[in-house]
Every structure is written in structure tokens, then in C-alpha cells.
Nucleic acid binder design. Structure first.
Lengths: 150, 150
DNA sequence: TATTGTTATACTCTATAACTATA
DNA sequence: TATAGTTATAGAGTATAACAATA
């Protein structure tokens, strides 16, 4: 016990919560865009992919359907997103950004990226490259492994 | 705009919340140890460093003092940690694991590490090494950048 | 019947404010 | 006065259960 694989897992378990908290605190500190991390990620998803359904949002964030619904409620209340009924299947909701939402998403992305980038400045260029590679290794492993509806 | 540094920051912003959610969901699913991620991290800290003060816990987790206090309340209620009054400075609390807490911490660590390790199995050995390096690059950058008391 | 989504409700985690005790 | 910690209270975020509408 304590294989290289286990050691790697331990490192992740120690470091990821640290970073996550740092991101949340940073976003809360700059209150201008007033978005939680999941709200921001939802806007980003809608920006990449118009007419996203609620189920797709829930899947992307790893949330249950009711949680995603409430999250979208808040975005809609803030005039950042709108719900339309899907023409082909009237059960589905087609979500889209409003112009306000798009602007907010871009501003928040620039802000968060800037803060993170500042924290990364102590690293050398080669370190940053390694980091980027590592993130790209992790992304597919963890995409779509969140909460299930039941 | 879109420097390598910015790109790296964007990657982190996309990937870290995914992993964090996966870890939380995993820990919630295996209800035997019944620990939240911050509770677990606190036990781990106490395991590495006996007689830790509450302030140190708060600092380590990036929590405010009241939040840390309540978190410790729950650990104490669960007989996993105990509070003693510091002999040199009676304002301070010296926290320590109980035997139950130590056992629970070890079991949970093995469990969480095992789950994560399983998710990492698709990676090659060289990828895992890169990942480990990346975590070690990030750790010092984000250690101690959480919430402030005021 | 199965699927998509919403509403109702409750719980966990965390914060801010006010306080106590010790230095 | 300043520091370490606790108590009281409130808010955000998420889950489960029950429901409505469409397929």
C-alpha cells in the first residue's frame, strides 16, 4: 500500500479542495458579477452550446435535476438566461443566454481567469505547460461523474 | 488576451470543480465513515500534527473561526476529536484525535484514495507522474489563501 | 408507462455579528 | 486593548419526495 497511483490520489485529495476554496473565495470577494461557481459554469455552458436542456445542465454540473432547476431559476430571475419550450419535444426546456448573461459570463470569466493567472505567476513557463497538460489529463476522467437523479 | 497563463487558468477553472464534486459525491455515497470533505481534512491535519489550535484548523481549511469551531463541534460530538485547554495560553484550544478519530481518518483516507485511484487507472504511469508533479506545483500556491476572519 | 422538469421541504455548510474569557 | 474561541442567527446550495405535463 502506497503505490504511485495511491500517492497521486492522495495529492489530488489534498490539493483540489484548497484550489476550489480559493476560487470560491475569490469569486465572492469580487461581488460585481455576483455569480456562484456553478452559476458561472452554467452560463459558460450555455455560451458554448445554445438551446441546452436542463438535463444537460444537471449532467454537466453533476447536480440533480431539482437543484439545476433552482439554479436556473436564479439565472432567469437575474435576466441572464431564458427558458423556451423545445419545439420538437414539449417536455424539454431549451435554455439560452440573454445578452446580459453573455456579457456577465464574459466579464466573470475574464475576472476569474485573471485571478487564477495571478496566482500562477510564480511558476515557470515549463511548469505552466505541465500544469495545463495535467488538467487536460484529468478533464475526461472526471467529466460526468457527479450526482445521479436516482 | 489568451496567453498561455490565461489558458492554464481557464483549464483549472473548468476541471477543478468537476473533480471536487466527484470527490464529494463519492464520499457521500460510501456512508460508512460519514465525514464531509472538510471534516476529513481536519482529521488528517490532526493526525499529522497533534495539539493543533482551532485557528490553525481554520487557516488550513480556509474557513472562518466560527465555521471551524462548529465543524470541530461535530467531530467532538462524534467522539473523533477532543478539545483540551492549552497549558501555556488558556485562551487556546489544543485539538487532538481520539483513537476512534484516528481509525476513522485512516479508513476514510484509504477509501477516498482508493476511489480516486480507480478513476486514475486509465492513465499511463508517465501521465500519473506528471499529475503528481502538477499537484505538487499547485499545493504551495494555494495553501493558505482561503477565507479571512475579517 | 417513461421521461422532463418543477414545487415543496429539509439539511448541511458557511458566514457575520455579538459575546466570553484570557492575555 | 488585543487575541482565541464560542454562541446565535441567517443565507446559499443541494438533496429527496411528490407532483404535473408530455411522449
Amino acid at each position: 500500500m502506497e503505490s504511485p497511483l495511491d500517492r497521486c490520489a492522495s495529492e489530488i485529495l489534498e490539493v483540489i479542495p484548497l484550489i476550489m476554496r480559493s476560487i470560491r473565495t475569490e469569486m465572492r470577494a469580487h461581488r460585481s458579477p455576483e455569480l456562484s461557481v456553478p452559476q458561472f459554469r452554467t452560463l459558460a455552458l450555455l455560451g458554448r452550446n445554445e438551446a441546452t436542456s436542463l438535463s444537460e445542465v444537471a449532467e454537466h454540473l453533476g447536480l440533480t435535476l431539482p437543484s439545476a432547476s433552482k439554479l436556473v431559476d436564479d439565472l432567469v430571475a437575474g435576466k441572464m438566461a431564458k427558458r423556451k419550450i423545445d419545439v420538437g419535444d414539449r417536455r424539454r426546456v431549451a435554455l439560452a443566454l440573454t445578452p446580459v448573461g453573455r456579457q456577465k459570463m464574459r466579464a466573470t470569466h475574464a475576472l476569474a481567469r485573471g485571478c487564477l493567472a495571478k496566482m500562477l505567476t510564480p511558476l515557470t513557463t515549463s511548469d505552466r505547460t505541465k500544469l495545463e497538460q495535467a488538467m487536460r489529463l484529468l478533464q475526461p476522467l472526471f467529466a460526468g461523474s457527479g450526482a445521479k437523479t436516482r
